[in-house]
Amino acid sequence: MCVLALLVKREFYGYELVQEISKKMAISEGTIYPLLNRLKHDKFVSTYLQESTDGPPRKYYKLTDAGKKQLADFKQDWSGFVDIINKFLK
């Protein structure tokens, strides 16, 4: 879900995305790729290759419409959930 939220801002290539996430969360860098792979199978993200100025072409990840919808749904669920919890914590 965090991956989708990052991708809604702009398109990332794998390494960049991994750095972005591991900056914010303690997560093994290697586990992000299986996650991306599954998001791709779920058709929430799509990928394309783009030449980079130096080195081999980069595999970019892009949010699909289904991914955007999924993210919107999640946002709604999440804020609903947080509201409920907050009511108890007050």
Binding site: Y13, G14, Y15, E16, V18, E29, Y33, L36, N37, T47, L49, D54, G55, P56, R58, K59
Partner: peptide, 16 residues
Amino acid sequence: DEIFLDYEGHFSEGLK
């Protein structure tokens, strides 16, 4: 191949 693109990319970017 798809999976390899990710990991090869990771190495080349990381080394860079």
